[in-house]
Design a protein around this nucleic acid. Sequence first.
DNA 1: CACCAATTAAAACAGTTGTTTGGCAACTTG
DNA 2: CAAGTTGCCAAACAACTGTTTTAATTGGTG
Lengths: 209, 209
Amino acid sequence: MTQTDTVSRILDAAEVLFAERGFTETSLRTITSTAGVNLAAVNYHFGSKKELIQAVFERFLTPFTQSLVGELDRREATDEPLNAEVLLDSLYRVAMASLEREGRDPQRFMRLLGLAYTQYQGHLRRFIVSRYGDSYRRFAGLLSKALPGLDPVTFYWRLYFMLGATIFTLSSFDAIEAILKEDFGAESSLQETLERLVPAAAAMLHAGD
Amino acid sequence: MTQTDTVSRILDAAEVLFAERGFTETSLRTITSTAGVNLAAVNYHFGSKKELIQAVFERFLTPFTQSLVGELDRREATDEPLNAEVLLDSLYRVAMASLEREGRDPQRFMRLLGLAYTQYQGHLRRFIVSRYGDSYRRFAGLLSKALPGLDPVTFYWRLYFMLGATIFTLSSFDAIEAILKEDFGAESSLQETLERLVPAAAAMLHAGD
DNA sequence: CACCAATTAAAACAGTTGTTTGGCAACTTG
DNA sequence: CAAGTTGCCAAACAACTGTTTTAATTGGTG
């Protein structure tokens, strides 16, 4: 077993288990045993549990952020005006593509994103902001330009409303889908849900226009 | 120190600490020491940590739900048509009033609500659904009637979008407020944020009309 | 005042947590 | 081939978890 093998086996297992139960609720022993590696391997390769958590986020946020920045570059290069709906659609589309390309489950990452915001892990928030804050502000800036006449404070609050709707809904996708299936017999795919989310979020941003 | 005193001291401490750090991250020893009571008191009065968690939720969800049901009764008694905006406004107003009346911090409860959805605590979800599910469905039914022409599945997804926007934003209120203050020098009260949230959420529900 | 139930208290329980250690195998490099 | 780095493993570490036990203390009632 080569080094990279052990490292990525740990990351794979941790990613799934963290998304399922949260950080504190997932012990290193559970991670290493489902990964089929020795307990000490985590501290050997990552240093500590905290750093393992950060590594899990880095592995999926870095390619996603790069794709997003690339997409924004392309959009800005063409001189077409950027409206909010297009920007949101880009965001979701890039997220899906960048994650599915690596053969991993998109909604698992939504759960992780939700955890990053909800759980009591100061180091994680700091890590994410310092690493990806610039790209995030870039997107927010473009979206803000697409909504002229909206005062900045209102805009930012609505941005958070949108973020909340997205992360909350997608991270509970399984649970919500199960309820709707039972009550209406209607199956919903992640794709369809995003197609519902884009116009709804856009309407929220445009409220009062 | 009387019994009720010990019980409510434990509930007070647990409520604050749970909202701050989550359930697993808060030990019984931290709770009992900040409450100034003996460690064994939790198991004596509540049975277990799980039941303490449920008791914390029961103490604020029961009066809130009762107020909400009362408000819905009053609204339905008058034969005025109920539109979405009014219903949302009622919901938020009742929530604030019912919580502030007991002199407790409203956004702490939003954090708790967020935890109930996010954290890996099957018993809590089951407890809340079985205890308060009916009232929740009552509200959803009225809101659905206020939005004729919206197919049920789309309506329910948008309801979750709205729930997500609310819980997510209000449970991170402090953090968001701090960012906006730094960037724009603008202070936001919880009240103002709700006044921004109502029309935004209503616009999302009405999207495409 | 004496009794008895309810409450509090200190201590120990058994189990789990993240992390560290030291020995061992496998590899690369001189 | 020898030297030395790198990765892996079982075991132990100390600290912490929720819960239980046993004894002391309280407050109300006959």
